[in-house]
Design a protein around this nucleic acid. Structure first.
Lengths: 229, 229
DNA sequence: GTTAAAACATGACCAATATCAGTTTTAACT
DNA sequence: AGTTAAAACTGATATTGGTCATGTTTTAAC
């Protein structure tokens, strides 16, 4: 269970900060950042922002996981990205001037800080390192999404699942992968039933272990082979 | 036929510049830009850069069209984007520090200018408007690609074709859409044969006119309805 | 602890679309 | 202009993966 008060989260001691956009911050910058941010506890399945609305700031994950997704015509979610501790999300549409093209909500209970739009933009103006970090981040994601598109267009569901599991393993690190079958299907881009059947196959092939909701990869090499490059 | 010499292309008179990243440039900035750029004539199907290599600068399209694509495991192209006059391409991986994740080559004969990496980065450092324009551009594309992914995952080929034709109509403007069936299929994300059959359907439904290679949209509303939101 | 609601799982079926194997048309090159 | 290669097109067939229907297990709420 997470600490429900936000009072204990300070940027100076935030372990997620090290590998975040603010990882290079010096002492005084961290103090400023800490002063500007507001931290909140979110329970599972709480929205951070919703497609179509306008951004008021950015979110910085101290702890927890967040799915970033769009909804297709029939309301089905397509998960574009899963953010973990240290990730900063929601800045894209702040720059493009458009409303959010994606929604975001927590996948588990999380501590998430919020930095107001104006504060964030001022920080960006004054800090070339932050600015370049953001440009780099945007560029990197753009490249990832080109591959995502190609995978969707050309790989089979089985291949995409293998690919997705490898990505999820990175995101979950030491922890077991913990997603509902529906969320996983919406990440892979398939029907829930198909996903379940394929997971069963992978389990029988001793590629993964399934512990009810949680999932462990036991043969990464096989997954790599199935996923293709 | 295009003018084959690059000598006649200068940034000051470049009509494509107005709605490019350099659209807001003042007189002296345009002179600098003109001094730094090198213009070249490309014939059809000439590569600008290739996936896996490292960027040496950016390309600015004076005239022509360029496809930006990745190759899947079996070498099949997936077209991610089609650039037109005024578009600047190839800057993504310059910022991310990674090799190109995509390739680019001309779809028709084109005049394309090149600006070296160092020159471009200096320009960015000195020009907040250019910088913000780039950040905006990266952000906008990131949003577009989220939708692209969702379309791939959830729309039928027929719906995606309708969607793609609307995008192509924007890119080609007054001109007729002029792509090989294979390129169009690689943009929609389907087999060439399937694309051909669907084009035939659309033609019979009087949604498009086909003039051998070239293609004209005659009922935009129907396309909108098929494409979904 | 009980109960209701999600989430998970499985089977049967079928539609969409890929693949393969051609033929015809168009464009490019000498 | 004639030749050749590439592109466009067509038909037959195979198959992936989505949908629907239904049952079971797990989780969450009271």
């Amino acid at each position: 269970m997470l600490e429900k008060s936000h009072k204990h989260v300070t940027c100076a001691t935030c372990s997620a900060r090290k590998n975040s956009l603010f990882g290079t911050y010096g002492e005084s910058e961290v103090m400023d950042l800490n002063h500007e941010k507001m931290c909140n506890y979110y329970k599972k399945n709480q929205p951070l922002f919703i497609e179509g609305s306008f951004p008021r700031g950015v979110f910085c994950l101290n702890q927890g996981k967040v799915k970033v997704f769009t909804r297709g015509d029939e309301g089905k979610e397509q998960i574009i990205h899963i953010a973990k501790a240290g990730d900063v999300i929601g800045f894209r549409s702040m720059f493009s001037g458009e409303p959010y093209k994606v929604s975001a909500s927590t996948l588990e209970e999380s501590n998430i800080c919020f930095i107001g739009k104006d504060d964030f933009l001022v920080m960006m103006d004054n800090n070339p390192i932050l600015r370049n970090g953001i440009i780099k981040e945007l560029s990197k994601e753009l490249g990832d999404r080109a591959q995502f598109i190609t995978n969707m267009a050309q790989k089979s569901v089985r291949e995409r699942l293998a690919f997705s599991l490898l990505i999820l393993a990175d995101i979950y690190g030491e922890e077991e992968i913990n997603l509902t079958r529906e969320d996983m299907a919406n990440f892979v881009g398939t029907a829930t039933e198909t996903l379940i059947r394929l997971l069963k196959d992978f389990k029988e092939d001793e590629i993964i272990e399934i512990h009810t909701r949680k999932l462990l990869i036991v043969n990464r090499d096989k997954l790599l082979r199935i996923a293709g490059r």
